[in-house]
């Protein structure tokens, strides 16, 4: 049986892992390669490296970070943050990324999703959606959550799938960094609307939040950053808990 995946996300700036609350207030959390090594030992299923600055100067630093992380772990590695062109995606893949995650660029130039899916296969293309509650629907935000894209998250997820995305990385902006639990309604709304795996993100605080998002939220994978970084919640403990709850995980 396919297991539910536990994914550790590292927000990287200038080669260092940082983590903010609601996309703000970045604080340092350590060396990406060292952190990746620890996660690997603890049994993480996948690692995501997000370049949170995504400036031109940070590009080369990012390539070095990807390469250093890929040397440490033999697990799927996703890279995102500011990938706006086929060249930027190719550079990430060349450095050792197995998948690239597109956010703002996918909305601005949806053809890029198709181009990359044709070149590397859909399995290598993740469309990241930052969603926020707007009344009884979920709106999409871009530019690290600062700009309303005037799109519906469920509708955009469907389009992303049709354009060739292999997975959706769905972040609840309302919950990101709050540790109040994943937004299960948002996750289920998107997971039920598409036939590709949905990675839930934003709000992980305790073990029970993961169980919830896998059951009530219909998520295929769950991503967290700070609770793993600061070792509040060990990956191994989390997986033992989920296993005891009857949720299939890789132990």
């Amino acid at each position: 049986m396919l297991t539910k995946r536990i994914i550790a996300c590292m927000d990287v700036r200038d080669g260092q892992v940082v983590k903010g609350v609601r996309f703000q207030q970045l604080r340092h959390a350590g060396d990406p390669a060292a952190l990746a090594r620890r996660y690997n030992v603890e049994g993480i299923d996948e690692v995501v490296v997000l370049d949170v600055t995504a400036t031109l100067e940070s590009r080369q630093a990012l390539a070095r970070t990807i390469s250093a992380v890929a040397r440490e772990i033999f697990l799927p590695l996703t890279v995102g943050g500011g990938i706006r062109s086929e060249d930027a995606a190719a550079a990430a893949v060349e450095a050792g990324a197995d998948k690239v995650s597109l956010n703002t660029a996918a909305l601005r130039t949806p053809e890029l999703v198709t181009t990359l899916a044709r070149r590397y296969g859909s399995q290598a293309v993740i469309v990241a959606i930052d969603a926020k509650r707007q009344g009884d629907r979920f709106g999409v935000f871009v530019r690290s959550g600062t700009s309303d894209a005037a799109r519906d998250a469920v509708e955009w997820a469907r389009e992303a799938e049709a354009r060739g995305a292999g997975e959706i990385l769905l972040t609840s902006m309302d919950r990101d960094g709050t540790r109040a639990g994943f937004d299960c309604e948002l996750t289920a709304a998107v997971a039920d609307a598409v036939n590709i795996p949905v990675i839930a993100s934003g709000g992980a605080g305790g073990l029970e939040h993961f169980a919830e998002v896998f059951t009530r939220g219909h998520a295929d994978a769950a991503l967290a950053a700070s609770i793993f970084h600061y070792a509040d919640t060990g990956v191994a403990d989390l997986k033992r808990y989920l296993n005891a709850e009857g949720i299939p995980v890789r132990l």
């Binding site: 396919l2 297991t3 859909s122 590709i196 295929d220 890789r250």
Partner: peptide, 8 residues
């Protein structure tokens, strides 16, 4: 789901 993505 298809694609079959993940640990099995």
């Amino acid at each position: 789901k298809i694609p079959h993505v993940g640990w099995n």
